[in-house]
């Protein structure tokens, strides 16, 4: 039980880090990188699919509870995209760096598009600014995955398949 609990605690801490004033107050970032999404992706790549599913569900529920409005969109998009990414992963024997990048791009798009469409239906606000938000959001996640890849291959000297 404690062994599995640590994955949820890490997810919780990542949400806390994501909401820190450091990103907006010090770095003045418009978009905050989605560490939780990258973490779920990493769990899937490390063959911890079941844990990834539950962490995805837990994070989605937690983010929805933190949303000022009563909503279910995070639970839906995180859980659905986790299932989708597990499905993609099972189609390949091993993912190389390019495939990993493509997978995280797809993962980010699956998470962000339902959210954008949902907020559009709620408020009828133009999609123009949301497009740039999606673009940079995907880019951020791809950059983080690149850093993780760089760290595991060049710093920890772990070989990729």
């Amino acid at each position: 039980m404690i062994f599995y609990l640590k994955y949820f605690v890490i997810a919780y801490l990542l949400v806390v880090i994501q909401s820190n004033v450091f990103f907006k107050g010090v770095l003045k970032l418009f978009i905050v990188p989605d560490f939780v999404l990258v973490y779920i992706f990493w769990l899937t790549m490390e063959n911890k699919e079941n844990i990834a599913k539950y962490v995805g569900l837990f994070t989605g529920i937690f983010l929805d509870l933190l949303n000022p409005e009563k909503t279910f969109i995070n639970t839906f998009s995180y859980f659905f995209s986790t299932l989708y990414i597990i499905n993609i992963k099972n189609k390949f024997i091993g993912l190389n760096f390019t495939l990993k990048l493509l997978a995280i791009v797809l993962f980010s798009l699956i998470v962000s598009i339902p959210k954008t469409v949902y907020s559009f239906f709620l408020s009828n606000v133009s999609l123009n600014q949301s497009l740039s938000l999606i673009g940079f959001y995907v880019l951020y996640n791809a950059v983080i995955i690149y850093f993780i890849y760089y760290f595991t291959v060049f710093v920890l000297k772990r070989d990729e398949i």
Binding site: V15, V16, Q18, S19, N20, V21, F23, K24, G25, I31, V32, D34, V36, L63, L66, N67, P68, N74, S112, K115, T116, S119, L133, Y137
Partner: peptide
């Protein structure tokens, strides 16, 4: 005092 911002990029809120 403002101590945190929304972790969700699609929400404009703070704590």
């Amino acid at each position: 005092r403002v101590i945190a911002f929304s972790p969700d990029n699609w929400v404009n809120s703070f704590f």
